[in-house]
């Protein structure tokens, strides 16, 4: 590639044009393969909706279409930023994400460090196989299981609580307990699966490093602290950016299945609000404004996180 480029630089304009035509003709089958997918999917279903965010500045009506509805400027944004609900859902979105970052993000790291201490490969593999299971199940299934386990009347958790002599707890309806259920269910779903990438990173650490500190008399905790953790620092950093980049984008499916009207004050987040108000109540332009707000914050977060990681001396994502 670099050789042909330097060759081309020295050529005249016509020769370069001729080379371009020649290359395009040589790769005609390749373009014939990819262009239908590129245009039919990436352009149509990714880039056209990006232009479609302009409906946030229009009064969208189905008859007028995405490009024909009348412009109304920033009216929807003004309404959005003034509404008390906006403050509430933004706060809920950020809080739930913050809890995830504090409790859910470290869970696979801790599990991986512990799994690394299991000497028998067979036992370790069995533990992993079991821990991966919840990752492969739908949130419809996981949510159903959680709600039935926690049911105050027929759930096994409350049966245990009552047998210990306490009052049953209405987990799903309590604004205090709901975020706890949300985070624990998130850990249940993905912590086991999340260990894969950390275990791979751990297995890439040079065994001689352990040998060296062991000679210095380091015990297992110190080995973990001085060798294993620094060894997987890069992996942790990369996964942290990925997480921060999604900071404002809570998974719709998990929230929706666990949500109910009694806990809306802590459980309503941007995507569920967009779905409820935008699609069920058909306020397209208003919620498109909220969606655009979310996308822009999301973009800023990924770029900031990537820049931070690079400044720390790790390899960024792009």
């Amino acid at each position: 590639m670099s050789v042909t480029t330097t060759q081309i630089v020295g050529l005249s304009r016509e020769r370069r044009r001729a080379k371009l035509r020649q290359d395009l003709y040589r790769d005609r089958y390749l373009y014939a393969m990819m262009l239908p997918v590129f245009i039919g999917f990436f352009v149509l279903f990714r880039y056209v909706p990006m232009y479609g965010v302009t409906i946030a500045f229009r009064n969208y009506r189905i008859i007028d279409g995405m490009f024909g509805s009348p412009w109304v400027g920033t009216r929807h944004f003004e309404r959005l930023f003034r509404s008390p609900e906006f403050v509430l859902i933004l706060r809920n979105t950020l809080l739930l994400n913050l809890y995830q970052l504090i409790f859910q993000f470290p869970a696979p790291i801790i599990l991986a460090l512990l799994l690394n201490e299991v000497p028998k490969p067979g036992f370790k593999r069995t533990l992993q196989s079991v821990m991966y299971v919840p990752y492969f199940l739908s949130w419809a299934v996981l949510g159903g299981i959680i709600i039935s386990l926690l049911s105050p009347s027929t759930g096994i958790v409350n049966a245990i609580i009552q047998s210990l002599g306490f009052e049953p707890i209405f987990f799903m309806m309590s604004t205090r307990w709901w975020p706890v259920v949300f985070i624990v269910s998130g850990i249940w779903n993905s912590a086991g699966w999340g260990t894969i990438i950390y275990l791979a990173a751990i297995s890439g650490i040079d065994p001689q490093l352990y040998e060296a500190v062991r000679i210095d008399g380091a015990n297992r905790l110190r080995q973990t602290w001085h060798i294993t953790l620094p060894g997987i620092r890069g992996t942790i950093a990369i996964l942290l950016i990925l997480n921060l980049g999604r900071f404002i984008d809570l998974g719709f499916e998990q929230v929706w299945v666990l949500q109910n009207p009694a806990v809306r004050s802590v459980a309503e987040v941007i995507p569920t609000y967009v779905y409820r108000i935008g699609l069920q109540a058909m306020q397209y332009s208003y919620t498109a404004a909220l969606g655009l707000f979310q996308s822009l914050i999301g973009l800023a977060l990924v770029l900031t996180a990537n820049w931070t990681i690079r400044a720390m001396g790790e390899e960024g994502l792009f």
Partner: peptide
């Protein structure tokens, strides 16, 4: 770029 920024639920639905 499509991984970094998206039109969102509503514009895609409208399309």
């Amino acid at each position: 770029f499509t991984m970094l920024f998206s039109g969102g639920i509503i514009p895609t639905y409208v399309l």
